[in-house]
Design a protein around this nucleic acid. Sequence first.
RNA 1: GCGCCCGUAGCUCAGUUGGACAGAGCGGCGGACUUCUAAUCCGCGGGUCGGGGGUUCGAAUCCCUCCGGGCGUGCCA
Length: 567
Amino acid sequence: MEELRRHLEKKAREALEEMGAGEVSLSAEAPRDLAFGDAALACFPLARTMKKSPAAIAAELASRLGPDELVEKVEAAGPYVNVRFRFSAMARSVLLGVLEGRPPYGPFPARGKTVVIDYSSPNIAKPFSVGLIRTTVIGAALYRIYRHAGWKAVGVNHLGDWGSQFGKVLAALERWGDREELRRNPIRHTLELYVRYHREEEKDPALAERAREIFRKLEEGDPGIRALWKEITDLSLGEFQKTYDRLGITFDLVQGESFYEPYLEETIQKVVEAGITEVSQGALVVRLGEGDEPPCLLRKSDGTTLYLTRDLAAVFHRWEKFHFDQCLYVVGGEQKLHFRQLKGVLQKMGLEWWDRIEHVAFGLIRFKDGRMSTRHGKVVFLDEVLDKAVEKVREIIQEKNPDLENKERVAEAVGVGAVVFNDLKNSRIKDVRFDLEEMLNFEGETGPYVQYAGARLSGILRNAAARGLEPAGPEEDPGLLADAREVIHALGSWGDSLGRALKEDEPSQVTGYTVRLARSIHSYLHDHRVLGEEEALSRARLLLVAAARTQLERALGLIGLACPEEM
RNA sequence: GCGCCCGUAGCUCAGUUGGACAGAGCGGCGGACUUCUAAUCCGCGGGUCGGGGGUUCGAAUCCCUCCGGGCGUGCCA
């Protein structure tokens, strides 16, 4: 599709030059409706320089753009020039592009650029709640998308394994904890302790004092406290890993905030040496901007450090290690100020790479009656949601396809996929209401809908193989697929979707692509048979089926969904 | 109070960066399985694009203002 558009753009450029428009160019875009054609040139941008109406320009341009080996028909429609490509050329370009894995369908060659992506980064004193799914799956999708586009991607899990909340948990453990229970059920027990702490903190000032003291000792390196901390973080991380495995998510670098603990002093020193700090109310701060913009705190009045201090240490470390071209933080939108401050400090320090930092924000998950709160124990565990989804899929399989092999594996892939898909469906910035019922509705624009399209395609390919029928080869004319124009277009729009996904750091563009592709496939398969037609037709359609299946699996893979052969 | 984000069909959302008649899914109603998987497909109904101004040949999209919701706003992360 891309090469056809470039061909058209080149022709248009030449024609416009003949028309005396000078060195101008128009870009070919997808028309609003397939009925208009396969590509459209909008002439609005030329109206001013050419001092003619867009419609007049379109009319003249259209008259100069004749048919050729790739273009079948050119037509002016108001301010647009609509172009229909020769179907065989278009189909061949798309189908072979997909099957041979040429970019953008297959991965791009390395382009020598590095992106560091910070995602998931759970606070491991807290449970793996559904709230964490957002950063985890959005970040992992971006990681795969950047890699597909030829970037060197570094996935970082910046574990929240440090900070005053550990003082709280350890203080609670000291007072009410059960070490046996902690080992058996680390996450739940830690959560219980955390909730209890917050319930009792208000009426018991000594408790809060003890928590602060413990955190201070932790930072000072007290061996007993350190050992306890290590035990909790290890147990907790083990539990997190199980969920990552289920989601198929990996990292290149798992490094807790604690890792940076020895570097905090030199980090603070670096900022001080830049001459931008001041002491205010006993705390070390950097003032950014004017007016009410709150200052950034590097060190509290009690001498301990903050989130920002540790993030600064981490970003220096990342810079030295990777010299990234971009560094993305996939973190909720409520932390916008924090990242503005992080960038602000770097900028004020005069570091030229401050602008490569980007906060990829997303909306939070809310319940009908307000937001989640770990402190109040108002959490839903992600694993429970996944389990419910998988259970629902099991029931559906039992009902629809009881003879299926690998039932359990398919149920897991479809159930987990449904939850992941649901989270990647909408623009990331929107808040999402936690609605289990909607998550478990598997009809319409859902993960199972897309996977089901893949399974139907696979079924056809299996049957064809059993009959010894091969897809048409590249030398054969794909003209027999003229009734599949919509599928070809859906397939061919991949470059647009991928481009926007990258430009906007928006995995939902890929999700949307899978839905459109699946829809065109379902619709086509409903109206057309592949096997049992005249051989040339069957083989041509088989080529389409193979390409659709390949591309669907690729796109699903980028957002972290499997594409089961059967379901 | 101030700052940022969101507001499109009953519900959940798209809307290709200012352009062709505002589109999907869910829910509702009505149809399609002796034929490669009906977790599917096809049709119908449903919208002052939160309100009001402005910029423009042209605004859901840009600017101003108001309203509603969310988030943040010095020692949490």
